[in-house]
Write a protein that binds this DNA or RNA. Structure first.
Length: 227
DNA sequence: GCGACAG
DNA sequence: ATCTTGTCGC
C-alpha cells in the first residue's frame, strides 16, 4: 500500500524529540472507527536478533487478518540493521525504518493497524502507533504489554474489565483485561481513532489469548524468519 | 537530585 | 527486545 515518507529517520535523539513535538500537533483523536466497515485488520511488530555475522537486525512483520473472522490473508516482512538505540519514548525511531519498508510491501490496504506499543499513552502523546499512523494515514491503535507513563487502578479481573490510564489529569488510554486471570494490556489511540472504538476493536480481535490475534501473528512472524 | 522508563 | 525448563495453578 502507499505510505507517505514524512521525514528522515537518521537524526539524533534530541532532534527526534523536537520532531515528535511538531508531529503531535497533527494527530487526529476522537474519531470513531466504523467497525461495521472494517474488513482488514493488521498486526504490527518488530523483533531484534543478531544475524550470522552478529549484527543486530530489526525484523518487521505486518500480518493482515480478515475481520471479524480473524483469518490471516497477508504477511509482509522486512529486515535491516537496527538503526537506533532503545530509548524509552523514542521507540518509533528504532522500529520505524523497518516498518516503513514492510508497509510498502503490503499488497492489501488494511482498514486499521494495531501496534505492539503505545499510541497516545506517551510522554509527548506520540508513541509508535501514533507516529506511524501519520505515515499510514489510516486508523491506528497502540496495544502495549507494560506501562510507559500514566497512573491507573487495577481493572476488574474479568474479560473486558478496564480502568482509565491517566497522566497529568488527562485520560491517555485504557488498561484492559482481555482475559480473566491475566495481566491487562495498555490500549491507547494512535491516529484517526477514538478510545472507545479502539477498545471495542481490540476485544473483537482477541479470541483465545491475552494479546489480540493480529499482534500475536505479527510477533510470531517477526521473530521466526532468518535473514 | 531521584525515580521511571513501550520494545 | 533477548537469554530459557520446569512448574505452579485453574
Amino acid at each position: 500500500m502507499n505510505i507517505t515518507h514524512r521525514h528522515d529517520w537518521h537524526i539524533s535523539p534530541t532532534q527526534a524529540v523536537a520532531l515528535q513535538r511538531e508531529m503531535a500537533a497533527e494527530v487526529v483523536y476522537n474519531r470513531p472507527i466504523d467497525l461495521s466497515a472494517v474488513r482488514l485488520v493488521a498486526g504490527v511488530d518488530v523483533s531484534v536478533k543478531p544475524d550470522a555475522a552478529g549484527v543486530a537486525m530489526s525484523q518487521a512483520a505486518v500480518v493482515v487478518l480478515s475481520f471479524p473472522d480473524l483469518t490471516v490473508v497477508e504477511t509482509a516482512l522486512a529486515a535491516m540493521p537496527t538503526p537506533f538505540p532503545y530509548i524509552p519514548g523514542l521507540l518509533s525511531f528504532r522500529e520505524g525504518p523497518v516498518l516503513e519498508t514492510a508497509f510498502s510491501r503490503l499488497k492489501s490496504e488494511p482498514d486499521v493497524f494495531i501496534f505492539d506499543g503505545m499510541g497516545r499513552a506517551h510522554p509527548r502523546r506520540i508513541g509508535i502507533a501514533t507516529h506511524m499512523g501519520l505515515w499510514l494515514q489510516k486508523p491506528t491503535i497502540g496495544c502495549g504489554k507494560t506501562l510507559l507513563t500514566g497512573r491507573f487502578e487495577p481493572p476488574p479481573d474479568e474479560r473486558g474489565g478496564y480502568s482509565e490510564l491517566v497522566d497529568k489529569g488527562e485520560v491517555i488510554g485504557v488498561v484492559l483485561r482481555t482475559r480473566a486471570g491475566v495481566k491487562p494490556v495498555f490500549i491507547s489511540v494512535g491516529h484517526l481513532a477514538d478510545l472507545t472504538t479502539s477498545v471495542d476493536l481490540v476485544m473483537r480481535c482477541t479470541s483465545k489469548y491475552r494479546l489480540p490475534d493480529p499482534i500475536r501473528a505479527a510477533h510470531n512472524a517477526a521473530g521466526q524468519f532468518e535473514t
